[in-house]
Design a protein around this nucleic acid. Structure first.
Length: 304
DNA sequence: CGCCAGGATTGAA
DNA sequence: TTCAATCATGGC
């Protein structure tokens, strides 16, 4: 047993404390953790590491499943299974996709891509910060934010210090200028206002779980800095509203190129198509299309 | 409607 | 080597 006070610079343990093998079938861990859903995972050698709640977590894809290690002792791994959605039945989800060439190609391109189930506040904050930023910058902002406002957590020997994601109370107590120092620019007032509404009990993230997709989306969009796209990301990645179909520039290009190659589709047309064509797990379909354009069509499609 | 507000990275000039 | 474009929200 390693206590946090054992070393004066904080939080370095001599080794991992507990481990588990989560059995999974058809799960591409790398593609999933690096697919623009979550911004705090990094690849190191042959594994991935990140922070979930107060845990430093190391994950490795192995035969038959995902091997997980934490520094601090874990008895119940539900939180990790929930985050990874390791018990979701991907095959039955894939069966609901429309049978057309673009979907077939996108699925074939990345067998085992999954949707994660993230903490609502962390996901909301991350996507408020994502607005008009690219993934590298989002990661940088979040890293600065966690270092400044998060709690230090135990890491294995030799690892850089790691921090929990700061709760709404921590952000609510900050000033806009302090937040701007984390390089988030004009997103600072939006994040601050969201944190204060949530911390003050005026905005209830839990209540969204009991709403319909449409209601929850409208509710999220009352937050400054949350438009339709960001609301859809949060509803899909944190709440599991599988019909949510975030329409970002890449997915719009994918739909235009793959489904309307001969004629220019209007914004409204693309939105209507996205909402009607992809079935009950449209969000999964979106993730496969997104991954496909990012990895395969990138160079060709961007001139459209 | 068009522009602007951070800014790391990419790719064109 | 410069330098414009990327990203998507809200205010003007």
């Amino acid at each position: 047993m390693v206590s946090p006070s054992q070393k004066n610079n904080g939080n370095e343990a001599s080794s991992f404390g507990t481990q588990i093998l989560l059995p999974v079938i058809d799960y591409d861990l790398a593609a999933t953790l690096d697919s623009g859903q979550a911004f705090r995972w990094q690849q190191k050698d042959n594994h991935w590491q990140g922070v979930l709640g107060k845990h430093f977590v190391r994950l490795k894809q192995v035969e038959g499943g995902i091997h997980a290690e934490t520094v601090e002792k874990v008895n119940n791994w539900y939180w990790l299974e929930e985050f990874l959605q390791s018990k979701s039945d991907l095959a039955s989800i894939l069966k609901t996709f429309p049978v057309d060439d673009p979907m077939t190609t996108a699925v074939a391109n990345c067998h085992g891509l999954r949707l994660l189930r993230q903490d609502p506040w962390e996901c909301l904050a991350a996507f408020i910060l994502s607005s008009t930023k690219q993934i590298v910058q989002i990661r940088q902002i979040i890293s600065l934010l966690c270092r400044k406002y998060g709690e230090p957590i135990m890491v294995p020997a030799g690892e850089a210090p790691a921090f929990s994601f700061p709760g709404p109370d921590k952000i609510a107590a900050a000033t806009e200028a302090e937040l701007r120092a984390c390089k988030m620019g004009f997103r600072a007032p939006g994040l601050l206002a969201a944190a204060r509404r949530i911390d003050g009990g005026e905005f209830d993230l839990e209540a969204l779980k009991r709403m319909s997709y449409a209601e929850a989306r409208l509710q999220l969009m009352t937050l400054h800095g949350v438009g339709g796209k960001i609301a859809d990301c949060v509803l899909l990645f944190a709440y599991g509203f599988d019909t949510s179909f975030p329409l970002d520039v890449w997915v719009k290009r994918a739909l235009q190129e793959l489904y309307f190659p001969r004629r220019r589709a209007t914004e409204a047309r693309l939105e209507r198509f996205a909402a009607t064509h992809f079935g009950p797990h449209a969000g999964y379909a979106q993730q496969y299309l997104f991954h496909y354009v990012r990895t395969k069509l990138h160079a060709r499609i961007k001139t459209i």
